[in-house]
Simulated assay, not measured.
Amino acid sequence: MSSNSGSRDITAAVVRGKEQPFVIEQARLRGPQDDEVLVKIVATGLCHTDLIVRDQYYPVPLPAVLGHEGAGIVEAVGPNVRELKAGDHVVLTYGQCGHCNPCRGGHGAYCRDFFALNFGGDDGHGHTAITDAQGQPLHDHFFAQSSFATFALAREINAIKVPDDAPLELLGPLGCGIQTGAGAVLNSLQVRSGSSFASYGAGAVGLSAVMAAKVAGATTIIAIDVVPSRLQLAMELGATHVVNSRETDVIEAVRAITGGGADFALESTGRPEVLSAGIEALGGLGMMGVVGAPKLGTTASFDVNNLLLGGRSIRGIVEGDSVPQVFIPQLVTLYQQGRFPFDRLVKFYPLEQINQAAEDSTRGITLKPILRIAA
Rank of each mutant, 00 (worst) to 15 (best):
T49K: 06
I52R: 06
I52V: 15
V53F: 04
V53Y: 03
V53P: 13
D55F: 01
D55A: 14
D55Y: 00
Y57C: 08
Y57Q: 15
Y57M: 14
Y57G: 11
Y58C: 12
P59C: 04
P61S: 06
L62C: 09
P63Q: 08
P63W: 06
V65P: 04
V65A: 04
G67C: 06
H68Q: 07
H68Y: 05
G70M: 02
A71G: 11
A71Q: 11
A71H: 11
A71T: 08
G72V: 00
I73A: 11
I73E: 14
V74H: 13
E75C: 02
E75W: 02
A76H: 04
G78I: 00
P79S: 00
P79Y: 00
N80H: 05
V81H: 05
V81R: 03
V81L: 03
R82S: 12
R82T: 09
E83N: 09
E83G: 01
E83R: 09
L84I: 02
L84E: 12
A86V: 00
A86H: 08
A86P: 12
A86M: 06
G87V: 10
G87W: 04
G87H: 12
D88L: 02
D88K: 02
H89N: 12
V90N: 11
V91M: 12
V91Y: 09
V91W: 07
L92T: 03
L92N: 08
T93F: 13
T93I: 10
Y94L: 11
Y94I: 12
G95K: 01
Q96H: 13
Q96F: 11
C97N: 09
G98H: 09
G98D: 09
G98N: 12
C100A: 05
C100D: 05
C100R: 12
P102K: 12
P102F: 05
C103P: 14
C103R: 14
R104T: 10
G105C: 01
G105V: 00
G106D: 14
G106Q: 13
H107N: 13
A109H: 07
A109W: 10
A109G: 15
Y110R: 14
C111K: 10
R112D: 07
D113A: 12
D113G: 01
F114V: 10
F114R: 13
F115L: 15
F115M: 15
A116N: 06
A116I: 04
A116H: 03
A116F: 00
A116D: 05
N118I: 09
N118C: 08
G121D: 10
G121L: 03
G121V: 02
G121I: 01
D123W: 05
D123A: 07
G124T: 03
H125A: 10
G126M: 04
G126D: 01
G126Q: 04
H127Q: 13
H127K: 13
T128W: 01
T128L: 02
A129L: 01
I130W: 02
I130V: 10
T131V: 15
T131Q: 11
D132V: 08
D132Q: 03
A133I: 05
A133E: 06
